[in-house]
């Protein structure tokens, strides 16, 4: 019993051997997983970026920080 189509490397017919990855036959499911991973990543990244930019704006609007930052001072109050 193996997760791949191979259980031994002894006496293998090299002319007919094809895929040897685990869970062969599940390529469609794996492609859907890849698609989902990719799309979810964009959603999470954009949410995070939106939150981070809002935090930046809030900080820059306080205590003259915007002027300080534009002069190159990164130590904001």
């Amino acid at each position: 019993m193996s997760t791949t189509p191979v259980e031994t490397w002894q006496a293998v017919d090299g002319t007919t051997l094809g895929v040897i990855y685990p869970f062969a036959g599940a390529e469609g499911v794996l492609a859907v997983l890849l698609l989902a991973f990719w799309l979810i990543w964009h959603v999470l990244q954009m949410r995070h970026e939106k939150r981070e930019l809002q935090e930046d704006v809030d900080l820059l609007r306080k205590n003259g920080n915007l002027e300080r930052a534009t002069k190159g001072d990164n130590l904001l109050l």
Binding site: M1, S2, T3, T4, E7, T8, W9, A11, P22
Partner: peptide, 18 residues
């Protein structure tokens, strides 16, 4: 886990160690 049962050993070892 993912490769459970796949032979770890080369063919010349005879019976495979999974």
């Amino acid at each position: 886990f993912l490769l459970w049962g796949h032979p770890a050993t080369a063919g010349y070892h005879g019976e495979a160690t999974p």
